[in-house]
């Protein structure tokens, strides 16, 4: 892994088409601007990690819920809404 020290206003160029600029530093917060082709997906690390964690929690094979119960509740909700 490469670690670089940059000052506000300085840039890092990745390949030919990605430019990361340190736009500013305020206390703990570092503001970056990123210029990259549209097909390069950029996410805050914690969002991707949260989706990985949620998928892992969602993928539980054993507990099969009784969905028919939920569906009848759903129908009831709908009836109620229709009456409202």
């Amino acid at each position: 892994m490469l670690a670089l020290t940059r000052k506000p206003g300085e840039r890092i160029v990745i390949a030919d088409n990605i430019v990361v600029t340190v736009a500013g530093v305020k206390g703990d917060n570092v503001r970056l601007t990123i210029d990259a082709p549209k097909e390069i997906k950029i996410f805050r690390g914690e969002i991707y990690d949260a989706i990985v964690a949620e998928n892992q929690e969602a993928a539980i094979p054993g507990k099969l819920p009784d969905l028919s119960m939920l569906i009848s509740d759903l129908a009831k909700d709908k009836d109620k809404k229709d009456k409202d």
Partner: peptide
């Protein structure tokens, strides 16, 4: 994707 909790 749904995540199933203890209480459905």
């Amino acid at each position: 994707i749904a995540t199933i909790k203890e209480n459905i």
